[in-house]
Amino acid sequence: MNDIKTIIEALLFVTGEPLAPKDIADILSDGERVRTRDVMNAIDELKAEYAGTGRSFAIENIAGGYRLHTLPRFERWIAKLFKQPTKSRLSQPSLETLAIIAYRQPITRVEIERVRGVNVDGVIRSLMDRGLITIRGRKPVAGRPFLYLTTREFLEHFGLKDLGELPMAEELRKSITRTKETTLEVNSSGAEGSTDENRPAGREDS
């Protein structure tokens, strides 16, 4: 058990991408099977150790995996080391569009525009360029428009474990705007037009 812990530490030490507990378990399974549960327990122990001994880094659970990161209070010095100005932040239109996609995915461009009330062509392009959203399939309606989803990079960018961690997740997934299209699909039953299509497709894997 002790051994597993140090091996995991070594694995986390060398990787920048989040490591899924299952992948760690596969690596550790050498002859006899190591269970994902054991991996997670070992990681919890490591976490506690780091916190207890005042290390400058911690393990985070992000985008479905585990990863080491430095603690926020070291930002000043690390930033000096990299001599890098702060990363370009997302603009307000980008954030709004991203929020709509995150809660309502998979979603088409027209559906996004219906919520924002403006054309989102340019914003979508820049979000695609940054790898925060992706196209996955098409909606089976006239014109077969693309369906957009957030990516794993999106989760990483905002430090989320999965989409369930988004603020006000439950409330925002439901659409309150009743449109012609959704009313049709919901065969004009009453009240709130909460269609199933609005349910998020779970977390991105890739």
Partner: peptide, 24 residues
């Protein structure tokens, strides 16, 4: 729209927090 605007603000705060963390 207002709800999404609010959430966008929250996402922005989260983004700022993230900038303080570094990974390999």
């Amino acid at each position: 729209y207002r709800k999404f605007k609010d959430v966008a603000t929250q996402l922005q705060a989260m983004e700022e927090e993230r900038e303080k963390l570094f990974r390999r």
